[in-house]
Nucleic acid binder design. Structure first.
Length: 733
DNA sequence: AATCCGTCTATTTTT
DNA sequence: TAGACGGATT
């Protein structure tokens, strides 16, 4: 028993061995958060405080859930299969499958991912003849999801204006369409499950009696609906063990509500607030930088990281003349790090927005350094996979209009827009799904769609009872998808992905242990239990787990990613790039409530990814959206104590090689010859200047001449200003 | 049915 | 600048 608790420090130990009461664990970056969570679960089970079936643990990503299961399995000699550990969406899906009738859903309801949902919205707008310029599909989708995450149905929405009324109507129509098609989008999984528990008292009581312990990972990322869902499950008796870090809350833009932490503490009178502040990851200088930076935020629960490790190296700061030079610096620095023996995968280059990766990739490629870019399309989001899944969805549920429309003429089989329209008219007239409307379509169109129906029916009959991977393989064959991509010029990758789908199905069947028993359900719900249904489960899996990125995870390569995707990871060396006002902090954040504080938390996350070496870099010039932009250094650089930084370039004394200014006019002082530009100014675009009141800035634009001459200056924190040259006493910096 | 062309847009992202 | 998308063309 002691071995389980041995590796813990006093605070971790206290958290792990808390009595059965509510607890809020403020777990700083690198403080052993996952260890505490998993050891808590193991300890609860080992001491008999809980049974494996009596606890529920919820995470945000499948990866986090998997890691938890793996670590528990390593600590305890129990089977983790059937334990309720998963994502919010995964757990809700599980509950809705078990109680689909009570939830008002068909047993084989389909899950719409974000793409599918947008498609469904577009389809709806078309059928209602809505002007897509006035009501853009994306806006409608956003409106719907936003309401759902507030726990609202269309009938609950308070309408203020005409547009709001229209949006709300569309919301209602959308939900109706989904219901008819047996489709459930992501927020709907949560809301349906929430409503089910709220409405159905016996069911709620059943789950409350079962889950005496509710553990939540990354609690700062929960949205309002998720919190309310947790509260329903927790009831009055059960213990919530929430782990989170308000300083790492970086998802407000997608609905995360840090306020849930304070609410939990207040509403549940949490006596046990434990701070995990000892950091096991980074050296002292890195933590000093992080602590000093985040201290600039006003809204905090308060926390200070410390380490027993030494102060380590100073942070290295580099100012580049342009984004291209910054990238070249990165590549050269990485090269020498690798020569010193640092593993490629232990080096990360971080940036605020994806568009920044391009230049960096170019530089790494030129240097011949293998790299891997995170983000982009995942396996189950690929076009060919979506097509294949659409055929499988039609096998499971022919009334799935979205799936039918996707593949009715793909690969091309002579069912053109006219035929599809005829089919849609027939469906609208009869108030049925497209599939059911097929017999009512006359003429040539009728024959064509009839053939498609026959294709699907034949496929269903011929795969009846076959193991899932074989069903998938047959579908690829009979649909003509494989042949189609084989014939395509650049289709080799797609064919490969399709083959991979068969493997994914095989792996899924293996992991879920089909044939042995149905996935764990509850006593008392047996009557509603669907027959073991590998296909339906696999389709849900495909929607809920979008799968790996294109690049293989195992390859040893330098890692390129946004700061957001770096959360939760750590590296020997981290480069934080593009530290410029307008980029990081991003200019868009200025318009958002508490936007700057969130940007600062983002920077905090970035800094705390580094174990031993941290580089900070920025560029004077950056090409963005085809335009050259002149930025001032990020204010975050000023918020880090000078004592922990070492400037690799002279501070505030930019070194500008002439060649960097080929595209833009060079600052006067670097010009060998006087320029022949039109407005004859004592200053040049791109030049750093000092203003008595606004401080240091960079000239980004100029117009007029003589006494009319005005220049636009980016003063960073002080904002962008147009100044009359005659009056503004500008000095070259 | 495929290809071309103009238009639009351009933080961050998981499920 | 570049990529995605939708409509129109061939």
């Amino acid at each position: 028993m002691s071995s389980l608790l041995d590796p813990l420090n006093p605070e971790q130990l206290q958290a792990v061995t808390l009595p059965n009461q509510h607890a809020l664990i403020l777990a700083g970056a690198g403080s052993g958060k996952t260890r505490v969570l998993t050891t808590r679960i193991a300890w609860l089970i080992q001491t008999g405080n809980a049974t494996p079936a009596g606890l529920l643990a919820v995470t945000f990503t499948n990866k986090a859930a998997r890691e938890m299961l793996t670590r528990i399995a390593a600590m305890l000699p129990i089977s983790t299969r059937g334990m309720w550990i998963g994502t919010f969406h995964g757990l809700c899906n599980r509950m809705l499958r078990a109680h689909h009738r009570d939830a008002g859903l068909p047993p084989l309801f389909q899950i719409l991912d974000t793409q599918d949902q947008l498609g469904a919205v577009k389809r709806l707008l078309k059928s209602l003849d809505v002007d897509e310029d006035r009501y853009p599909p994306k806006q409608v989708q956003w409106f719907i999801n936003d309401r759902k995450e507030e726990g609202l149905r269309a009938k609950d929405v308070v309408v203020h204006d005409e547009a709001g009324r229209r949006y709300t109507e569309l919301f209602a129509a959308y939900d109706e369409q989904c219901q008819k098609e047996g489709a459930v989008d992501f927020p709907e999984l949560l809301l349906r499950c929430f409503e089910l528990l709220q409405r159905n008292e016996p069911l709620r009581a059943h789950y409350q009696a079962r889950f005496r312990h509710i553990l939540v990972d990354e609690f700062q990322d929960t949205n309002r609906l998720q919190y309310r869902w947790l509260k329903l499950l927790a009831g009055k008796e059960n213990a919530i063990f929430a782990v989170g870090d308000d300083d790492q809350s970086i998802y407000a833009f997608r609905g995360a509500n840090v306020g849930n932490m304070a609410d939990l503490e207040r509403e549940y009178r949490v006596q046990n607030v434990i701070r995990l502040e000892q950091n096991y990851r980074s050296h002292g200088n890195i933590l000093d930088a992080a602590n000093a930076l985040i201290a600039h935020n006003r809204k905090r629960l308060g926390k200070n990281l410390w380490t027993a490790a030494g102060e380590g190296e100073p942070l290295r700061v580099y100012e580049a003349a342009s984004d291209g030079y910054e990238a070249r610096f990165l590549a050269e620095e990485v090269q020498s790090l690798l020569r010193e023996g640092c593993a490629r995968r232990d080096v990360a280059i971080l940036y605020r927005s994806n568009a920044q990766s391009r230049v960096i990739e170019h530089a790494l490629f030129t240097q011949g350094i293998p790299y891997r870019v995170y983000g982009g399309l995942r396996f189950f989001e690929r076009q060919e996979i979506k097509h294949a899944l659409a055929y499988l969805r039609l096998l499971a549920n022919p009334d799935d209009d979205g799936a039918l429309l996707r593949v009715v003429n793909f690969p091309a089989r002579g069912i053109g827009a006219r035929s599809v329209e005829a089919l849609q008219d027939a469906a609208a007239a009869g108030g049925t799904s497209l599939w059911q409307a097929v017999p009512r379509v006359a003429g040539k169109a009728g024959a064509a769609v009839g053939a498609f129906v026959k294709l699907i029916d034949t496929l269903r009959a011929s795969t009846q009872g076959l193991p899932l991977p074989e069903v998938v393989a047959h579908a690829l064959q009979a649909s003509g998808l494989r042949a189609h991509y084989k014939a395509e010029r650049d289709g080799a990758d797609r064919v490969e992905n399709l083959e991979e789908l068969v493997n994914a199905a095989a792996a899924f069947v293996q992991d879920e242990g089909y044939g042995a028993q149905a996935p764990a359900a509850d006593a008392g719900d047996a009557a509603q239990l669907p027959v073991p249904d590998p296909l339906g489960q696999f389709l849900a899996h495909a929607a809920l787990e979008s799968g790996e990125n294109q690049a293989a995870e195992g390859t040893d390569a330098v890692q390129l990613m946004t700061v957001h995707s770096a959360k939760g990871l750590e590296f020997h060396t981290v480069f934080i790039t593009g530290l410029e006002e307008g980029l990081f902090p991003h200019e868009q954040s200025a318009t958002e409530q508490d936007g700057l504080e969130e940007e600062r938390r983002l920077m905090y996350v970035a800094i705390t990814r580094a174990r031993t070496r941290l580089y900070l870099s920025f560029a004077q010039t950056r090409l963005l959206h085809g335009q050259t932009r002149y930025n001032v250094a990020s204010r975050f650089l000023d918020e880090i104590p000078a004592g922990v930084m070492k400037w690799l370039t002279p501070r505030d004394r930019p070194v500008v090689p002439d060649s960097a200014w080929q595209a833009a006019p060079a600052p006067a002082r670097y010009r060998k010859e006087p320029g022949g530009g039109a407005p004859h100014l004592p200053f040049r675009i791109g030049q750093s200047v000092v203003h008595a009141k606004f401080g240091q800035g960079v000239i980004v634009n100029a117009e007029g001449s003589g006494t009319d001459a005005r220049v636009q200056i980016n003063f960073g924190p002080q904002g962008m200003k147009w100044l009359q040259l005659e009056y503004a006493k500008l000095q070259a910096a």
